[in-house]
Nucleic acid binder design. Sequence first.
DNA 1: GGGCGGTACTG
DNA 2: CAGTAC
DNA 3: GCCC
Length: 787
Amino acid sequence: MIFEEEEMDDKDEYFRQLYALNDSSDEEEDTNNAREILKQSSRPPSSSFSVSSHSFSARRSQPSKTLGNISAIHRTTSAPASSTSVVRETPLLTRKSSKLRYDISTPEMNQTFSASTPPTLSSIPAPAPQRSVSTSELDTGPKLNMVPSAGINAMLSKPDERKKRKRKETPVILVPERERIFAGKTIFFIPPNDKHSVREARITNAMKYGATWTKKWTPDITHIIVDKEYKFEQIMGMLKPLMKTDSIPQNIILVNDKYTVDCIRDKILVDETQSRYIIRRDVPVTEEQEIRQPAEPRKALRIQRRKSKKDQDTPDDHTQRSEASTQSQHPQDQPDSSPGVWLPTTNAEPPVIVESPRERSPMLDVALGEGSELDTAIAEIMRFGDLPLDDDDDEEERPSSSEGNTDPDHDGSSEEDLRPRRRTKKRKKFQKQGDANSAAYVCMTGGTGITDETNPNRHTIQILEKMSKYYGRMSDTWRELSYRKACGTLRKQGVWICTFDQAFELPFIGERIATKIEEIAITGHLRRLDNAELEPEDHLLKLFLGIYNVGPVEASKFIRAGYKTLDDLRTKARLTKCQQIGLDHYDDFATRIPRDQMTALGEIVKAMAKPIDPDVNPIIGGSYRRGAKDSGDIDFIFTKPGTTHAHDLHYFLSSLVSRLTSTGFLTCALATPSHRRDDDSGSKWHGACVLPGNPIWRRIDFLLVPESEIGAALIYFTGDDIFNRSMRLLASRKNMRLNQRGLYKDLMRGPGRLKLNEGELVEGSDEKRIFEILGVPWKKPENRICH
DNA sequence: GGGCGGTACTG
DNA sequence: CAGTAC
DNA sequence: GCCC
C-alpha cells in the first residue's frame, strides 16, 4: 500500500535526522520483562534456559531467582544494546566548517518560496496560506544530508519532481490578525527545510503568526533562524556565498531557534540580542566578524531565565503563585465558562504582557486584586519566566525536584536564599494529612470522560495512551499505570496543556510526563513513542497480545519460538482451548460494540432471564453503564432481592446459559464458575455471544451478585479500572478494604501490608453508602472515567 | 526507597 | 503456582 | 511512571 510506504519513508527520514541532530532523547533506561525474556532466549539454545525448561530440578531451584533477575534488569539495566546504539549515534553535524563548499549556483536563487506570498500587510484578510510549496518538494533522493559541509545548496531540497511525495498538507491557519507578530517578516531557516519535525513545527508556527518562510536567499529576509546545532562559523560559511558579502546585513536578525519559540510564547517580538539567542561559535569570539551578533547582549537583562525569577520569589509569592497557577491557564485556552478569566475575545490583553514579560513588577502583584483578569494573565507570565525553555544544549535542567524540603511555606524565610529552588515542590493542594489526603485519589474528583473532539488535550492523550499501552505490552506495569493516570488527569482539563509547568502542576503528572507533554505540544510527536513503536518485536507483541487469553508471557514465548503471524500460531503453536477461540475470532473480539448493539444484546439476555426468574435483576455494567458510545465487551450483573450468596443464583445462571446457548445466542464458554470447591463464589461466567443477524462474536460476561453485595459489585463492574483501584487504595489507607463484595473496616495489616484479618463488613449493598463511608463524593457512572 | 487493587478461573 | 482476565 |  503506497500510503504506508510513504509513511514509513517519512518516519525513516524523520528518525534519521532526529538521530543526526543528536537530540539526546530522554532515553529511559527502561527495558522490560518481555524484551529481556526475549533477549535471554535469543542466546544459543545451549544456554541454561533450555535446560531449565526441561529439567524440573533446575527449574525448581531457580525460579524465584530468575524472576528476581528479570525484574532487577527491568529496573536498572541500561537499555538493550539495540536501542541505545541507535539513539546514541553521534551527530555528523559538528564537522569542520573548512569543508564547506561554496558551489552555490546563482540562477534562480532569488525567488522567494514563501508559500502563498507574503502576507506582509497585517490587514490581509487571512486566507490561510498553504505551506504547500514549501513541503511539496521534499527531496527523496540521496537523503538530504544535513552535514554542514554539504553547504546550503545541498541542504535545499531539490525541486526535482521525482516521485512527489504528498504529505498531509495541513494548511497553516493564521492566528487572529492582531496576534501576527511576524507579519511582514521573512524568515530564512537553517537548515532551510522542514524535514525535521521540530523545525517543521517551528516553521509552521512562525507562519501562523504571520511570517513568510523563504527557502532561498532573498533581499527581503528579515530573520535568520538557525538550528542550535550550527555554529556561527558554519553558518557564515554557508551564507557568505549567498549574501555575496562577508557579513550579515545589519537589518537581518540572526538568532537561534529559541527565538521564534519565545516570540510566539510571549506574543511579541522579543529582544533578539539576549544571549540566549546567540549562535555559538566554535572559536572564542573573534571580532573581526563585524556582524551584528553581539557577543554579549547589550542590554544586560537580568532575566537569566527561570532561575533569576525564582530567586526573587518571596514566600508569599509562592502562595499566590501556586494558587494562581492552579487556576490560570493560557488565556486563549480558557473555557468560556470560567468566570473572571481572561478571554481571547475580550481583548483585555494586559499591556504588561507586552511590555516586559520577564520583568515582573512587584507592584503589579499588589495592584491587582485576586480574580482580576490581569491576575491570571500575570500568573501565567510568571509561570513563563519559570519555563524550562527548550534549551537542550545546556542540558541537565530539571533538577528532579529532589529537594527534600517538604514545607515550602517557610523555607526562604531567613533570607532570599539563592538556593535555586526551581519549583515549589510539587505540592498538590491538600495538606490535611491526618486523614488520607485526598488529592492522590482519582475517585475523589472523578473524571469526565470528555474524550470527544472537543477535548483540547485529545492529541496528547492519544499519544500518552499509546505510551501506556506500549508499557503494558512491555509488562511494565507501573509505568503503564502512571501513564493511564496521567491521561485521566489530562482528560479532565478544560484547557490545552502545552507547557511543562502547566502539566507538572497537575496530579499524576511528574517531571517525565510533563516533559513529554510539552514535547507533544510543540512537535506533535513523542520521540520515545515513535521509537518504541519502531521496534519490530513490538508489532508482534501487539499482534499476539490481541488474542484472548494470551498475555505477555505467552506472547513472548510465541515470539521466542519464532512465530511471526497468526497463521504461524494456528498451525504451529500449542494453544489452550480459550486461546484457540481467541485466535479464531481475533478480529471479532477486537471489534468494538456500538452502544445500540449493546442495548440489543441486553434486551435479548433480559428477555431470556425473565421467564427463568422474574425477580432476577439484570444490569449491564462496564463501560455501558458509564455511558460509553461503544464497548469492548458486555458485562451483566445478575442480582436478586433476598439473596446473600452468589450460590443462590447458580441455578439461574446455569439455566440462563443453557437456554441462551440453545438459541445460538451464546457461542462458546471461556470460563465458567468453578465447582471444584463448593465454598462459595462460583459467580462468574465468561463467554461469547452473537447478535442475531450479525456474525461478529462478542465477549460477554455474567456475574452473579447477591443483593447484599450489589453495591460493591456495581462499583467493581462499573469501573473504570483506575477509579476502582483508586477507591480501593483509598480504602486501604483508611484501614479498610474494598472488593467486589463489600467494604470492610478495621482491617489490620502486617508488614508488607499482609492482611492480618478480614475486617468487618460495613457495607456491601448500597453503592452510595460505600462512597459515603469512604468520604468520596458520589459519582455517577459516567463520571468515573479516569483512564 | 517502597508503595502501586483485589479477586476468580484455568491448566 | 503462574498466567490471564476482570 | 508517580506519590508518599
